[in-house]
Design a protein around this nucleic acid. Sequence first.
DNA 1: CCTAGCCGACCGATCGTTCGATCGTCTAGG
DNA 2: CCTAGACGATCGAACGATCGGTCGGCTAGG
Lengths: 214, 214
Amino acid sequence: MAVNPTQTRVRKAAIRLFAKKGFHGVGIRELAQAAKVSPASLYHYIGSKEELLADIMWESLERLLSAAMLATTDVADPQEKLGRLVTLHVIAHAVQAKETAVVDNELRSLAPKLRRRVIDKRDTYEQLWAETIEQGAEAGVFRQDHDGLARKALLEMCSGVARWYSPKGEVKLDALASQFTDIALRSLGTSDAPPQPDLDRCRTIVKYTWGTHV
Amino acid sequence: MAVNPTQTRVRKAAIRLFAKKGFHGVGIRELAQAAKVSPASLYHYIGSKEELLADIMWESLERLLSAAMLATTDVADPQEKLGRLVTLHVIAHAVQAKETAVVDNELRSLAPKLRRRVIDKRDTYEQLWAETIEQGAEAGVFRQDHDGLARKALLEMCSGVARWYSPKGEVKLDALASQFTDIALRSLGTSDAPPQPDLDRCRTIVKYTWGTHV
DNA sequence: CCTAGCCGACCGATCGTTCGATCGTCTAGG
DNA sequence: CCTAGACGATCGAACGATCGGTCGGCTAGG
């Protein structure tokens, strides 16, 4: 994302402030101060406030999408696939809560053109979930998901993690991922003790994608 | 909420705009124009922009809380109680999507004092869920919900409805409520064909609370 | 004549952004 | 080796626009 240390500060400050106060709730001066530069200098690193937002959202989605594709290619079993999708989604929304919260909440702050692109990328990601659920239904291990209701419900549930998770809290990431996977598979019809996905593989992907050890 | 027609227009415009663009994304001139009054006249109906937001959030939470209490008092069976909570929550977030989205997204736009009050009210509501789940666990019909994980997951899932539901869509409210209730009860350990709550009772409460026929 | 509803005009503050100038660092030519 | 100048980074100051909010006065019904 950024090798330049100032650029990194700008990026991190923007993510933190946008997540906390919302795009329109943060002024350029406040952002500059948080990044320890003058408002004018800020514009050597960003095209505009809106471009900065779009960049942040794009990168966050890019990572989530690539992680999801890494985790699901060459996996046939729908339960394993969905388990991995849930696990990665939940972990991403926990360890990158601010970025993902911005993606979820600030779409409306983007002009139509940029918004369209980000939404398309998000849809591409959600399509991975839809396909997996469909494959599971065809294989008879999942119930039919009429109108994508279950998919929407599960995605909202998993994204919601970014709204309440705190690394200072009691909840361990392992327990979080395993509980959410359990709920997801049960919701789709699996009864009693749903199988858990390959957690080590997910860990590797998280490390590779976000550089975070979990 | 409002008998005065102008006040009603102000309220509705505020809800629509705050939901669409966020509190800080809406100026009072835009709000005034949408309510068909001058910016100055606006202040005959509101104390300040922030008070208007707090009022909207308070009223929305008040309704949800009273509906939930109506639905659960004198109900012993935890499955029936939780089913009603889910049903009302989901219906509220579907037919009052804008108001509830404002409650969920704009807490951060409130000054600490007002925010504290709104959060306390929200916590009171969520406590109803926590108690119900706990009762179910004690009765042996639900699994133990460690750290409130399942409660948080289910609440986010149900609130998420406001983010995607459209009355123009294919999804019928009945199917929505029944599917979400099903997922909620399965998530808590109920296997196969979870019982559905008294839908007629929920309908009555919705009609009484929001004046909406569902 | 009082009051409720409404508004045009205006307040100081802040908004996102730009401009011109000043730094130090690197490089090419003599 | 020296130096002129290009360059990236930084900033103070200012731009016009818009922000949330106020004030004095107009109008209409009781």
